[in-house]
Amino acid sequence: MASEMEKADALLHTFSTASALSSLALGMFCFVADRVQQATFIQQNDWLRALSDSATHCVIGMWSWAIVIGLRKRSDFCEVALAGFFASVIDLDHFFLAGSVSLKAATNLQRRPPLHCSTLIPVVALTLKFLMQLLRLKDSWCFLPWMLFISWTSHHVRDGIRHGLWICPFGKTAPLPYWLYVAVTASLPSVCSLIMYLTGTRQLMTTKHGIHIDV
Protein backbone atom coordinates (compact mmCIF):
# COMPACT_ATOMS: atom_id res chain seq x y z
CA MET A 1 0.00 0.00 0.00
CA ALA A 2 1.44 3.34 -1.01
CA SER A 3 2.03 5.89 1.74
CA GLU A 4 0.17 9.19 1.83
CA MET A 5 3.36 10.95 0.77
CA GLU A 6 3.72 8.70 -2.28
CA LYS A 7 0.08 9.30 -3.20
CA ALA A 8 0.56 13.04 -2.91
CA ASP A 9 3.73 12.84 -5.01
CA ALA A 10 1.94 10.89 -7.74
CA LEU A 11 -0.91 13.41 -7.79
CA LEU A 12 1.48 16.36 -7.89
CA HIS A 13 3.32 14.97 -10.90
CA THR A 14 0.04 14.24 -12.65
CA PHE A 15 -0.68 17.97 -12.78
CA SER A 16 2.88 19.27 -13.09
CA THR A 17 3.94 22.11 -15.35
CA ALA A 18 6.15 19.72 -17.31
CA SER A 19 3.15 17.51 -18.03
CA ALA A 20 1.09 20.45 -19.25
CA LEU A 21 3.89 21.71 -21.50
CA SER A 22 4.51 18.23 -22.89
CA SER A 23 0.81 17.85 -23.69
CA LEU A 24 0.78 21.22 -25.42
CA ALA A 25 3.84 20.24 -27.44
CA LEU A 26 2.15 16.96 -28.39
CA GLY A 27 -0.82 18.87 -29.77
CA MET A 28 1.53 21.08 -31.78
CA PHE A 29 3.33 18.01 -33.11
CA CYS A 30 0.03 16.57 -34.36
CA PHE A 31 -0.63 19.76 -36.31
CA VAL A 32 2.88 19.99 -37.77
CA ALA A 33 3.09 16.29 -38.66
CA ASP A 34 -0.21 16.40 -40.52
CA ARG A 35 0.88 19.47 -42.45
CA VAL A 36 4.16 17.82 -43.42
CA GLN A 37 2.28 14.78 -44.70
CA GLN A 38 0.35 17.01 -47.09
CA ALA A 39 3.58 17.63 -49.01
CA THR A 40 3.21 16.71 -52.67
CA PHE A 41 6.16 14.32 -52.77
CA ILE A 42 4.62 12.33 -49.89
CA GLN A 43 1.09 12.29 -51.24
CA GLN A 44 2.25 11.12 -54.65
CA ASN A 45 4.10 8.11 -53.25
CA ASP A 46 1.96 5.39 -51.67
CA TRP A 47 4.78 3.96 -49.58
CA LEU A 48 5.93 7.34 -48.30
CA ARG A 49 2.37 8.24 -47.39
CA ALA A 50 1.81 4.96 -45.54
CA LEU A 51 5.16 5.05 -43.74
CA SER A 52 4.80 8.69 -42.69
CA ASP A 53 1.30 8.00 -41.40
CA SER A 54 2.49 4.97 -39.44
CA ALA A 55 5.48 6.90 -38.09
CA THR A 56 3.18 9.67 -36.86
CA HIS A 57 0.99 7.13 -35.06
CA CYS A 58 4.14 5.68 -33.51
CA VAL A 59 5.52 9.03 -32.32
CA ILE A 60 2.16 10.07 -30.85
CA GLY A 61 1.96 6.78 -28.95
CA MET A 62 5.51 7.15 -27.66
CA TRP A 63 5.04 10.79 -26.72
CA SER A 64 1.77 10.07 -24.93
CA TRP A 65 3.28 7.34 -22.78
CA ALA A 66 6.36 9.45 -22.07
CA ILE A 67 4.04 12.09 -20.61
CA VAL A 68 2.51 9.46 -18.34
CA ILE A 69 5.71 7.94 -16.95
CA GLY A 70 8.45 10.49 -17.55
CA LEU A 71 11.89 9.50 -18.82
CA ARG A 72 14.39 8.91 -16.01
CA LYS A 73 15.81 5.44 -16.59
CA ARG A 74 16.88 3.37 -19.57
CA SER A 75 13.96 1.01 -19.00
CA ASP A 76 11.58 3.95 -19.45
CA PHE A 77 12.71 4.26 -23.06
CA CYS A 78 11.87 0.59 -23.58
CA GLU A 79 8.33 1.23 -22.32
CA VAL A 80 7.98 4.27 -24.56
CA ALA A 81 9.19 2.26 -27.56
CA LEU A 82 6.64 -0.46 -26.75
CA ALA A 83 3.88 2.16 -26.65
CA GLY A 84 4.94 3.37 -30.09
CA PHE A 85 4.86 -0.20 -31.34
CA PHE A 86 1.31 -0.68 -30.03
CA ALA A 87 0.20 2.60 -31.61
CA SER A 88 1.40 1.68 -35.09
CA VAL A 89 1.25 -2.11 -35.32
CA ILE A 90 -2.54 -2.29 -35.53
CA ASP A 91 -2.37 -1.04 -39.12
CA LEU A 92 -1.10 -4.49 -40.04
CA ASP A 93 -4.72 -5.63 -39.89
CA HIS A 94 -5.16 -3.87 -43.26
CA PHE A 95 -2.91 -6.51 -44.81
CA PHE A 96 -4.64 -9.26 -42.84
CA LEU A 97 -8.06 -8.27 -44.17
CA ALA A 98 -6.70 -7.80 -47.68
CA GLY A 99 -5.12 -11.25 -47.55
CA SER A 100 -2.12 -9.78 -49.30
CA VAL A 101 1.13 -7.96 -48.61
CA SER A 102 0.30 -5.56 -51.42
CA LEU A 103 0.09 -1.98 -50.14
CA LYS A 104 -2.44 -1.12 -52.83
CA ALA A 105 -4.72 -3.95 -51.71
CA ALA A 106 -4.29 -3.04 -48.04
CA THR A 107 -5.23 0.60 -48.59
CA ASN A 108 -8.22 -0.05 -50.83
CA LEU A 109 -10.39 -2.21 -48.61
CA GLN A 110 -14.16 -2.37 -48.93
CA ARG A 111 -14.58 -2.29 -45.14
CA ARG A 112 -12.53 -1.35 -42.12
CA PRO A 113 -10.21 -3.98 -40.64
CA PRO A 114 -11.02 -5.56 -37.25
CA LEU A 115 -8.52 -3.77 -35.01
CA HIS A 116 -9.98 -0.44 -36.11
CA CYS A 117 -13.18 -1.15 -34.21
CA SER A 118 -12.98 1.26 -31.27
CA THR A 119 -15.17 -0.96 -29.10
CA LEU A 120 -12.26 -3.40 -28.93
CA ILE A 121 -10.06 -0.95 -27.02
CA PRO A 122 -11.77 -1.14 -23.60
CA VAL A 123 -12.60 -4.82 -24.16
CA VAL A 124 -8.97 -5.77 -24.85
CA ALA A 125 -7.62 -3.52 -22.07
CA LEU A 126 -10.00 -4.96 -19.47
CA THR A 127 -9.41 -8.52 -20.66
CA LEU A 128 -5.67 -7.99 -20.39
CA LYS A 129 -6.08 -6.58 -16.88
CA PHE A 130 -8.17 -9.60 -15.87
CA LEU A 131 -5.62 -12.05 -17.30
CA MET A 132 -2.81 -10.27 -15.48
CA GLN A 133 -4.69 -10.55 -12.20
CA LEU A 134 -5.39 -14.20 -12.91
CA LEU A 135 -1.70 -14.84 -13.55
CA ARG A 136 -0.68 -12.63 -10.61
CA LEU A 137 1.12 -10.17 -12.87
CA LYS A 138 -0.98 -7.18 -11.84
CA ASP A 139 1.86 -5.39 -10.01
CA SER A 140 4.85 -5.90 -12.28
CA TRP A 141 2.85 -5.29 -15.47
CA CYS A 142 0.17 -2.98 -14.12
CA PHE A 143 1.00 -0.36 -16.75
CA LEU A 144 0.34 -2.61 -19.76
CA PRO A 145 -3.47 -2.25 -20.10
CA TRP A 146 -3.11 1.52 -19.77
CA MET A 147 -0.32 1.65 -22.33
CA LEU A 148 -2.40 -0.33 -24.80
CA PHE A 149 -5.47 1.83 -24.11
CA ILE A 150 -3.59 5.09 -24.70
CA SER A 151 -1.70 3.84 -27.76
CA TRP A 152 -4.73 2.38 -29.51
CA THR A 153 -7.03 5.27 -28.59
CA SER A 154 -4.59 7.82 -30.01
CA HIS A 155 -4.46 5.79 -33.23
CA HIS A 156 -8.24 5.53 -33.53
CA VAL A 157 -8.81 9.21 -32.79
CA ARG A 158 -6.29 10.23 -35.43
CA ASP A 159 -7.90 7.92 -37.99
CA GLY A 160 -11.24 9.37 -36.92
CA ILE A 161 -10.58 12.71 -38.60
CA ARG A 162 -10.85 10.90 -41.94
CA HIS A 163 -13.16 7.97 -41.29
CA GLY A 164 -14.93 8.64 -38.00
CA LEU A 165 -14.92 6.15 -35.13
CA TRP A 166 -16.23 2.65 -35.74
CA ILE A 167 -18.29 1.79 -32.64
CA CYS A 168 -19.32 -1.84 -33.00
CA PRO A 169 -22.11 -2.85 -33.29
CA PHE A 170 -23.68 0.60 -33.65
CA GLY A 171 -21.89 1.74 -36.77
CA LYS A 172 -19.52 4.64 -37.24
CA THR A 173 -19.55 8.30 -36.34
CA ALA A 174 -19.06 11.23 -38.65
CA PRO A 175 -15.43 12.26 -39.22
CA LEU A 176 -14.08 13.97 -36.11
CA PRO A 177 -13.40 17.71 -36.23
CA TYR A 178 -9.68 18.34 -36.47
CA TRP A 179 -9.63 20.48 -33.33
CA LEU A 180 -11.24 17.62 -31.39
CA TYR A 181 -8.57 15.17 -32.57
CA VAL A 182 -5.78 17.50 -31.41
CA ALA A 183 -7.52 18.26 -28.11
CA VAL A 184 -8.21 14.60 -27.30
CA THR A 185 -4.70 13.50 -28.26
CA ALA A 186 -3.06 16.23 -26.18
CA SER A 187 -5.24 15.65 -23.11
CA LEU A 188 -5.47 11.84 -23.20
CA PRO A 189 -2.19 11.16 -21.31
CA SER A 190 -3.12 13.51 -18.46
CA VAL A 191 -6.68 12.20 -18.22
CA CYS A 192 -5.47 8.60 -18.14
CA SER A 193 -2.75 9.55 -15.67
CA LEU A 194 -5.39 10.99 -13.35
CA ILE A 195 -7.52 7.84 -13.61
CA MET A 196 -4.41 5.74 -12.97
CA TYR A 197 -3.85 7.77 -9.81
CA LEU A 198 -7.45 7.30 -8.68
CA THR A 199 -7.23 3.54 -9.25
CA GLY A 200 -3.85 3.22 -7.53
CA THR A 201 -1.92 2.21 -10.65
CA ARG A 202 0.49 5.14 -10.47
CA GLN A 203 1.36 4.36 -6.87
CA LEU A 204 2.05 0.73 -7.80
CA MET A 205 4.35 1.86 -10.61
CA THR A 206 6.21 4.07 -8.16
CA THR A 207 6.48 1.82 -5.12
CA LYS A 208 6.79 -1.64 -6.66
CA HIS A 209 9.24 -0.95 -9.46
CA GLY A 210 11.02 2.26 -8.66
CA ILE A 211 9.39 4.14 -11.51
CA HIS A 212 9.62 7.70 -10.31
CA ILE A 213 6.92 9.42 -12.28
CA ASP A 214 7.89 12.93 -13.25
CA VAL A 215 5.48 14.28 -15.79
Rank of each mutant, 00 (worst) to 15 (best):
M5D: 14
A8Y: 15
D9N: 14
T14C: 15
S16C: 08
A20T: 13
L26A: 03
F29P: 15
V32E: 10
V32Y: 14
A33I: 00
Q38P: 02
N45A: 06
N45P: 06
D46V: 13
L51P: 07
S52Q: 10
A55M: 11
A55K: 05
C58P: 00
G61V: 01
W65V: 00
L71Y: 13
R72D: 10
S75A: 15
D76I: 07
C78H: 15
A81C: 06
G84I: 01
F85V: 11
F85A: 08
F85D: 01
S88V: 14
S88T: 12
I90S: 12
I90F: 04
D93P: 11
S100E: 06
V101L: 15
K104E: 11
K104N: 12
A105G: 13
A106G: 04
T107D: 10
N108L: 02
P113M: 05
P113F: 00
L115Y: 02
L115Q: 04
S118E: 03
S118T: 09
L120A: 09
I121P: 08
P122R: 06
V123I: 15
L126H: 03
L134G: 12
L135E: 09
R136V: 11
L137W: 08
S140H: 04
W141H: 03
W141T: 01
W146T: 03
S151Q: 06
S154Q: 13
S154I: 12
H155K: 01
D159G: 05
G160S: 02
W166G: 03
C168P: 01
P169E: 01
P177C: 04
L180Y: 08
L180S: 10
L180R: 04
P189H: 01
C192W: 06
L194T: 11
M196Y: 04
Y197C: 11
I211M: 14
H212C: 11
